[in-house]
Amino acid sequence: MSMVKLVDVRKSFGDNEVLKGINLEIESGEVVCIIGASGSGKSTMLRCLNHLERITDGEVYIQGELTDKREKNKDLMKIDPVKVQALCAELGMVFQNFNLFPHLTVIQNITVAPTIVKKVDKAVIEKTALDLLEMVGLSDKKDEYPSRLSGGQQQRVAIARALAMEPMIMMFDEPTSALDPELVGEVLATMRKLAEEGMTMIIVTHEIGFAREVADRVIFMDEGVICEQGTPEEVLLNPKEERTKIFLNKIL
């Protein structure tokens, strides 16, 4: 059974069609990197998976369960929103701009959602949070406010925050794009560690080197469609499609 599945997904913002029929399945334990130029629909596709954007046409499945089915923006299924919310919470998300909660300390950022959404016991979740902070190497920052951390540190807290909800999949939306170059490495190292632990990951990224190293599958998107996909060797080293070659030539 696939962890997430998109069937013929289309998404328009007004007259602008951003996704033009996407079919995608992600298996358990897979690390998938999505590359492509800005405006190719990479981020939108990710955001459609956890309903930050609602699709216009097509079907979305999470762990085999239908979470959205639409035709011409008409909701065909009217699925119980509580159930959808619970399924979407299985997808942890890390944003380009971190989006930490500035009024909460590092540890509160990590514990707030498990406490109010899953009603996890306070002592239990604090222990989990400390373990996660240790994993991302920020144990000493637990009582700081996010504004006092560097970008790289903030992003590592954001990763810990998403992991605290024990998601089935971690999605990363250009996690290093807003970082100063010298801070990119520490975030990638954390992500690499997650991949080695067998976490299912979908990563939208411009870090081609990183994709080549950790990805099981690389997807190249262009103008709202999946143009080419395969192993990193196939897509990054021996691309078949002309558009993939042009893109890779531009950024390498």
Binding site: Q85, C88, L100, F101, A113, I116
Partner: peptide, 27 residues
């Protein structure tokens, strides 16, 4: 309040009400 705050709260499984009372309004 930056729209990313509501998105992050939703991505963590919070309902609109939870996100408003715990994340947005306190800010």
């Amino acid at each position: 309040i930056d729209g990313g705050q509501m998105e992050a709260a939703k991505a963590l499984g919070m309902s609109y009400r939870q996100a408003m009372t715990k994340i947005i309004i306190p800010q």
